[in-house]
Computed example of a mutant assay.
Amino acid sequence: MGHHAPLLLLDVVRAGGLLVTSPAWTWRDLAALLSPDELVAAGDSLLRRRDAPNRGGYLSQPDPLCGMQELQEVLQRRAGNRGASTARTALELMRPGADSAQETRLRLLIRRSGLPEPAVNQWIIGPAGQRVSRPDLQYVRLRIALEYEGEHHLLDPDQWHRDIARDDGLRRLGWVVLRFSKKHLRPGNQAAAAEKVRAALLTRGWRPGQPA
């Protein structure tokens, strides 16, 4: 069933030859349908970095599809609509830079486990000033990198080779590299995945209650 909404010009964009609601407005609509974690993942997808991998499909807009300010503005205008509480909760947990929903889910799992929140997709610079790697998540001071390995990494031999070289380069610089797959994010495996991160943090000198 359709519904009427007081749209402004900035709330409408063209995609695939059709007029559709803007990314920010659509995200706010989804707040009435999705769980907080799902809405965070959807929001992180809007905030991807400018040089993120190509999305494909008919969406011609470059990343990021919108900014935090646009999302906050739409949320304020629609504060009385269904899903407002979910949207406010999700907005506080969203972070720019994630490449995939699974990276977001891993970050939320770490946070929910009482561990320090890692940084998202930041370049690691080598001793000669060269860019070495940009892990999905990382603890910069402790030199811990976390990589989520999607299935395409295993199916593409060239990508798999690059991943191995990437991790070898980080280890030569003294970094610990933790790798995760979709099985780590399943309910029965989440506690072990969080413990994997906790153990690495403790090994590097972190103590509960301290920043990482």
Rank of each mutant, 00 (worst) to 15 (best):
G17I: 04
L19K: 12
L19I: 07
T21Q: 04
P23C: 13
L30E: 13
A32Y: 02
E38Y: 08
E38R: 14
V40Q: 05
A41F: 01
A42G: 03
S45C: 07
R48N: 05
R49T: 11
R49N: 05
R49Y: 03
D51F: 12
P53Y: 14
G57D: 10
G57A: 06
Y58P: 15
L59W: 12
S60P: 10
D63A: 10
L65D: 03
C66E: 09
C66G: 09
C66W: 00
Q69V: 05
E70M: 01
Q72S: 12
E73K: 09
R77I: 02
R77L: 07
R77Y: 06
A79N: 03
R82Y: 11
G83H: 00
G83A: 11
S85I: 11
T86L: 09
T86N: 08
R88I: 03
T89N: 12
A90K: 06
M94R: 05
P96I: 11
G97P: 02
A98R: 03
D99T: 01
D99K: 11
S100A: 04
S100C: 09
Q102G: 00
E103L: 09
L106A: 01
R107G: 01
G114H: 04
E117F: 08
A119G: 06
V120Q: 01
V120F: 05
Q122M: 09
W123P: 14
G126D: 13
